[in-house]
Simulated scan of single mutants.
Amino acid sequence: MKTIQPEEVQAKIEAGEAVKLIDVREVDEVETGHIPGVIHIPLGLLEFKMNELDKSEGYIMVCRSGGRSGKATALLQSHGFDVTNMDGGMLAWNGEVK
């Protein structure tokens, strides 16, 4: 499984790269703070919503600490998506939060 550090994600965003982040936390968790511009798909719905994602795009998966996003990364990889898990999740994120 590919992983990326939160600082690397933040650097990509600050450099203006088109970063596709998917936050797999629950609604109440996302409402308490999320990275601006994330796509929110709770982990429990990911299997049913993956048809809305583009396999030609790369995605970075985010959750609270990295566990659920790791499961999401494995699921999407098994279906042919280019996905990377953000290590440490939102607990390790020091960038902008909305």
Rank of each mutant, 00 (worst) to 15 (best):
G16A: 13
G16P: 07
G16N: 12
E17K: 06
E17H: 06
A18K: 15
K20F: 13
K20C: 15
K20G: 11
K20H: 15
K20Q: 15
I22L: 12
I22K: 11
D23K: 00
D23P: 03
D23I: 00
D23W: 00
V24C: 00
V24Q: 09
R25K: 07
R25S: 04
V27A: 13
V27I: 13
V27N: 09
V27D: 13
D28H: 10
D28G: 02
E29W: 05
E31M: 09
E31G: 00
E31Q: 09
T32P: 07
G33V: 00
G33Q: 05
G33D: 07
H34M: 06
I35G: 08
I35N: 08
P36T: 07
P36R: 12
G37S: 04
G37F: 01
G37H: 02
V38T: 14
I39R: 00
I39C: 00
H40W: 10
I41G: 01
P42C: 00
L43T: 04
L46A: 07
L46S: 06
E47G: 03
F48Y: 15
M50K: 14
M50N: 00
N51Q: 12
E52R: 15
E52M: 13
L53A: 09
L53P: 10
D54V: 04
D54S: 12
D54L: 12
K55C: 08
G58F: 03
Y59H: 14
Y59T: 14
I60T: 15
M61N: 08
M61C: 14
V62N: 11
V62G: 09
V62R: 03
V62L: 15
C63Y: 12
C63W: 05
C63F: 07
R64G: 15
R64P: 11
S65N: 12
G66Q: 12
G66L: 15
G66D: 13
G66V: 14
G66P: 10
G67N: 09
G67V: 15
R68T: 01
S69Q: 01
S69P: 01
G70W: 01
T73N: 14
T73W: 05
A74P: 02
L76Y: 04
L76S: 10
Q77K: 09
S78I: 11
S78K: 04
S78Y: 05
H79C: 05
H79T: 07
G80A: 07
G80E: 07
G80K: 06
G80Y: 04
F81S: 03
V83M: 06
V83C: 05
V83Y: 02
T84I: 08
T84F: 05
T84W: 01
N85L: 00
N85K: 08
N85W: 00
M86E: 10
M86V: 09
G88N: 06
G88F: 07
